[in-house]
Design a protein around this nucleic acid. Structure first.
Length: 471
RNA sequence: CGGGACGUGGCGCAGCUUGGUUAGCGCGCAGCGUUCGGGACGCUGAGGUCGCGGGUUCAAAUCCCGCCGUCCCGACCA
């Protein structure tokens, strides 16, 4: 057998990365374009991945004391106009419904691009006293932002996400919440998705419309471009003033709340593809893989053994799938599961059965080995942990190798470099930020010199800018 | 909205310049058989208002006009 040596099914990454991305999405059956430009049909395999992310993040959100709720899709237009920066930021991508019930509406309604406003409106009624605080809410929803240049998962006019919205008595508490959720996102990405994003604070230019502070998680994709994978905002009292979210404090004084919002969307599926994928397809970290191990029965006569093996894996706690579709050639099936990114493949043929063994292939390295049939469950569990760890190690090493230091705008203008360039903010500034923008570079975030996340009161001066081209 | 391209079975394309039999090809799909340890092969078969509307003509996928849609490049974005 000639291992791993077939014609590429996908466009190689080095040849045309965007094309590779599209190929993987199509061939792994993750998603496709919807009939309306910018919309996305998420296919079962893609949705299963999202559901794993969702389940993981949902439990983290609940563990930190938040409750899920659901707010309306339609929002009165005037709501947006109450917060000046917010309207300005979102009006270009707002979808507005002008007709309903066969007639023109007296008041057009917006389709939510985000829910600060409708939720703010509720908060103003739900909060009366400091005893009602903090109010910790989250919703899972779809939102619509009319996009001019859509890309599956990365930028679609409609996408799925989770948006947390909280209200607090003090700035200190709200900031703490903002940073807490920023950290929760990091845990999700690092521990579950095997990604190692750079954590930092957005510059004024990149801040969320209506926020005082925006914290971000910036991943580095395999083509050297950065991707914002999640954000957490301290909204100050901006929305509290706009929506009259007030409470009586312990002294009986009426005060405005401090609010936060934070979100992670189906975009992370795109980042998963571009962080771990290789020329053979997707490589899913075991913890998000809908199927962690696939048992391929090579020939009909081993179908019963394969079924047993599959049951054994399930008993060991592995999300296993049996592929006994021997009608389709072995090679075809092996490649299909590879493209779909299943972390471990167990091939069972007559030779294996004869030797009371099973051929085990790990997706990340392509390594193929024969393993005794006994004790296979525990061995696969160990192997999955290994794959999880090595994907994280690989992407971390890649990020570090593609991060360099520079000084001033010229650091990127001269080099035209991929990856991150670390530049002291003091040598860049808002003028430098504008200059590099013309060459397609942006300050992804500001980080403390020691690599930590800058606190809310840490001034920009003295921080280090991570600069990159971004999606 | 500015610049460029393209709409032909599910997908990818050819045919159009020079109008003329039954609109082809690859992949995919269905049935049968041979295969099966890295995207197998053979045979048979299904599937098309040639984006839409109008015009020219004996005759339009092909020429003309209009419309619609899509994709790529620029200004915004989880």
């Amino acid at each position: 057998m000639a291992p791993m040596s077939k014609q590429p099914v996908l466009t190689p990454q080095s040849e045309d990365f965007p094309r590779w991305y599209q190929d993987v999405i199509a061939k792994a059956e993750l998603a496709e374009n919807g009939p309306v430009r910018g919309t996305m049909t998420i296919r079962p395999w893609g949705y299963a991945i999202w559901e794993r992310i969702q389940a993981d993040l949902d439990s983290r959100i609940k563990e930190t004391g938040h409750e899920n709720a659901y707010f309306p899709l339609f929002i009165p237009m005037p709501f947006f106009e109450r917060e000046a920066d917010h309207v300005e930021g979102f009006s270009p991508e707002l979808a507005v419904v002008t007709h309903g019930g066969g007639a023109e509406l007296g008041e057009p309604v917006a389709v939510r691009p985000t829910s600060e406003t409708v939720i703010g409106d509720c908060m103003s009624r739900w909060i009366q006293s400091h005893r009602d605080l903090p109010l910790l809410l989250n919703q899972w929803a779809n939102v619509v932002r009319w996009e001019l240049r859509p890309r599956l998962f990365l930028r679609t006019s409609e996408f799925l996400w989770q948006e947390g919205h909280t209200a607090h008595a003090s700035r200190e508490e709200a900031v703490e919440e903002t940073l807490r959720m920023h950290r929760v996102y990091y845990d999700l990405m690092h521990d579950t998705l095997a990604m190692n994003p750079v954590l930092g604070r957005k510059t004024a230019a990149e801040r969320f419309a209506g926020a005082e502070l925006t914290y971000t998680l910036e991943g580095l994709m395999r083509d050297g471009k950065a991707l914002q994978m999640g954000t957490s905002h301290y909204l100050g009292q901006n929305f509290a003033r706009a929506f009259d979210i007030t409470f009586s404090d312990t002294d009986g004084q009426l005060a405005h709340c401090h609010t936060t919002s934070w979100g992670v969307s189906t975009r992370v599926v795109g980042s998963l593809i571009m962080t771990h994928g290789d020329d053979r397809g997707l490589r899913l970290p075991p913890r998000v893989a809908p199927v962690q191990a696939v048992v391929i029965a090579i020939r009909d006569e081993v179908a019963a053994d394969a079924r047993e093996l599959h049951a054994e894996l399930e008993a060991a706690g592995v999300r296993s799938r049996l592929d006994d579709d021997t009608h389709t050639g072995f090679g075809r099936r092996a490649t299909d599961w590879e493209i779909k990114g299943v972390p471990v493949r167990l091939e069972l043929g007559p030779r294996d059965v004869e030797q009371a063994a099973v051929t085990v292939v790990r997706r990340d390295t392509g390594e193929k080995a024969s393993h005794p049939r006994s004790g296979i469950g525990a061995a696969v569990v160990r192997l999955l942990d290994d794959v999880q760890a090595s994907l994280l190690a690989e992407t971390t090493a890649r990020r570090d190798a593609e991060t360099r230091d520079g000084d001033g705008p010229d650091a990127v203008l001269d080099g035209g470099a991929d990856g991150f360039t670390r530049i002291a903010w003091s040598s860049l500034g808002e003028a430098g930020e504008a200059t590099i923008a013309e060459a397609g570079y942006t300050v992804r975030c500001l980080v403390s010199p020691d690599g930590g996340v800058p606190g809310a009161d840490t001034p920009d001066d003295g921080l280090v800018a991570y600069v990159a081209r971004a999606y």
